[in-house]
Design a protein around this nucleic acid. Sequence first.
RNA 1: GCCCGGGUGGUGAAAUGGUAGACACGAGGGACUUAAAAUCCCUUGGUCCGUAAGGGCUGUGCGGGUUCGAGUCCCGCCCCGGGCACCA
Length: 1000
Amino acid sequence: MAYEHKDIEEKWRAEWAKRGTYKVASDPSKPKYYVLDMFPYPSGAGLHVGHPLGYIASDIVARFKRHNGFNVLHPMGYDSFGLPAEQYAIQTGQHPAKTTEVNVARYREQLDNIGFSFDWSREVRTSDPSFYKWTQWIFLQLFDSWYDHAAQQAKPISELLKRFETQGWHHADACALTGDVEEELGAFTAAEWNAFDERTRQRILQHFRLAYLSEAWVNWCPALGTVLANDEVKDGVSERGGHPVERKRMPQWSMRITAYAQRLLDGLDTLDWSESIKEAQRNWIGRSEGALVRFKLKDAAGDIEVFTTRPDTLFGVTFVTLAPEHELVEVITPADRREEVMAYVTTAKNRSERERMADVKKVSGVFTGAFCIHPFTGQEVPVWVGDYVLGGYGTGAVMAVPGGDQRDWNFATHFGLPIIAVTEGADISKEADERKDATISSEGFLKGLKVPDAITRAIDELVKLGAGERRINFRLRDAAFGRQRYWGEPIPIYYKDGVPYALPESELPLKLPEVDKFLPTEDGEPPLARAANWNYKGHPLETTTMPGWAGSSWYFLRYMDPHNAERFASPEAINYWQQVDLYVGGSEHATGHLLYFRFWTKFLHDRGWIPFDEPATKLVNQGMIQGVSAIATRSQFKTNFETDGPLIPLIDGRRIEPSSPTTGFGRFFISADLLGLIDFAKASVADERNVTHLPLDIRFVNSGIVDVSQMILGESREDIRSGVYLCLNGFIKDGVAKRYLNDNEINVEGEIVFRVESLVEKMSKSKFNVVNPDDIIAKYGADTLRLYEMFLGPLEQSKPWDTNGIEGTYRFLKKFWYLFHAGSSSDAPVASTLRVDPPHITDEAPTKAELKVLHATIKKVSEDIEKMSFNTSVAQFMIAVNELGALKCNKRAVLEPLVITLAPFAPHIAEELWEKLGHSTSVTLAPWPKWDASHLVEDSFSYPISFNGKTRLQLEFPIALSKEEVEAAVLANPEVQSKLGGQPPKKVIVVPKRIVNIVV
RNA sequence: GCCCGGGUGGUGAAAUGGUAGACACGAGGGACUUAAAAUCCCUUGGUCCGUAAGGGCUGUGCGGGUUCGAGUCCCGCCCCGGGCACCA
């Protein structure tokens, strides 16, 4: 009779594996559907209940689509290159491949327990040479490509060479140069190109390749011995480990993602992604329209280039500020100012980016002594250096308009520089006016124009004067691609005379070599430099490896054809499976993975390898499941013991006496309900440090009450094991509860229980609040876990995990099971229910009420899955079971379709019941039931009758009645009449099948 | 500062402009049981009146507005979460 989840789930997991139930192949006769989860990095900690949330949701959709006739690709794999395995390798000497293998096995075991419909025959691992062969191959394609801005497309380098050979390179083409890391490239003719030596040619080509090597400002992290990407640096320290990061110029592999800035931006409009992710990407790309303005130097050749979004404020320029790193600083500073200026530059430069960012309030700068010429007025404008201008961004110089920009205003005010009002109605004595809908008021030809018109006019004038032009600037930077690390894809490049060359395709995969240690060499070379024979035909190989995002930028393609040895995936497979129809993962990847993922897809499209240029049409971000930490308060009482003995004073004047401490000090854990009763003033807690908060392991906490005796057995922290736990009416020491030694129990009744406060925060080992899905599954089963995770709330929302609530979904499954077995002959509990527990199903025709429940459920669940509103579908299942239980329904015609609708959510129990209903094939093959609206039609409706919008009573009328008939019937009702008190209603609103509102 | 989310019982939450709190947890009461577990039934936003049946008022962060009717739409604030930021 009982619902034995363990037997059922083990049986079906084995059966699915044996039958290959979830294996999938291209099948042109069926429509395809591609459901993808962001694959996990297999960490040593294993999965906690938060990880599978998205996987369960996508699994439900995958199963639902299968029932609806789609051929569903639903794969899983591992992002198995990464820092933690390498850190572990450095500490222990254990090869990261080994650790990764162990962790993957553990992940697989945990994932299998949850009953996902993954086609494991398609598993990929980014650290597998058969996979990273193609990551390297794509790298070579990028190395062999340049971006033709005129055509808005990546093209082979060979085409560029032809162009150079016949046309050379002209400054007019210079817009092809993108990114922030190139040096100035001069124009050359075809004849010059043909005369260049190999070295020169290769150096020039680096300016065009989409994967390129150049001197770049990088985030160098000395502690990690590596370079970090911009998005791996948070607040000036490394995201992982929190080590300081400094700006350093060094040779660096980069990806020219900036070439795609406009397309990455435009593409967002075509995607069904959450607005917040799209917005984050828009911000990250950071397109701004404005003008490049050149200020001629007064006493030197050349000019200062400035980018501004507000050329309309040019008449408000009172000075120009250069970043301390700006190369002109040295050039223009006159000798008599040199000492002072260079001293400032040195300090400003040495301040880390972190300090400069943290210190917004402090204004610092110095006058160079040089002047430049205002392009419109011809007046002299002083040139300053200020550290509020960053060298790495834009041109590293700003035209300062203190009347229109707050930072410039701060700088001008601090140094007493003139401030000109640029807009009508601005009060420049208090702050700058940054409004973009103002009218220009500064003297000159822009006066009286609205800002947008003034911008256009200003640019026109700049162009006429040759002093500037329209310019679109992107915040997006080229992506650093090399890491001074071992555990990543080797970059398939070798060096001849210091010039990088592509390794021939036939040499791929370039496998990771064995090294004696996973650390940088003594002279700071990356670990790969330790490898013996790390060269190609005598030429040294590249020693940096690829970053984490390389493999994840294209893995979705490999799943389509994971064992192909000839190509990253066959054209047939790609043409069949196309884009990902539903991609599920965390929103923390908004500007990292999800941008590179789109970038590589666009690139592969440009070069003709794939027919689409966006990887995933729909993206859903699951929320985070937070942990609930159990926080215990611990205090060290002092001094009172010396005079009063081991008594703890309470605010009502009484004292409680736990077992006597041997010294004059006592360290106690205090139950949350006792906390407010202790008189901490009298207890003379020396200082705040004597009251501390410690997280207890939530495995020993139930509804806020700690099982202290169990906890001290399983606890590794000594202070927790040996602690004295003060409760309301006694204390617990060494796991034994005792009454207080004096008669001052606050409450002599009841058990001595220790309570903790709960705190919702990130689930993590260090907070002792991790819930392992394996434990939940052992107790309640995977089907219960799946249902409960969905039942917690909307998928995209973050929510705390509370194991206590799981009983509800477990009870639901037991009731569902009972529907099939109520009145069954074998009512006695038996060890295994699988064969001996016959179902009790009849073939009788269902009643109207039963059909209504069934069809309402099919309708609601079908619609909810499409909307990814899983919590409401689970609620509907509960309603159905409660109602069918009350109707004592055990009819096949009702239960059979219900099993199919439940199958995507709780596949194990559904398979078992499906089999019991007499089917020999898997429930996953059953077609999705259709709901029939005719079963949902009601004969009558109970109208809420409201007066002025407030519901007062209910009246039932046939739905066939017209508005007028309902109104008449309502007004004829004696109760309504008495409420009206003889007054005629002002108005009566009847909304059929909804409400009646009487206005009085 | 800017851009996205969000704010509803003790808790997780539900609600095409139409009966706020579905569903579930927890809590309280009861049934069954020698007992426990399991299961089942009832109550459960707040508050007031009533012995009771029942009824009144109030209530979706705050203040306005639109509407016969607002958790939902509009305007102005407050708070929480996430993202971005010396980009000139």
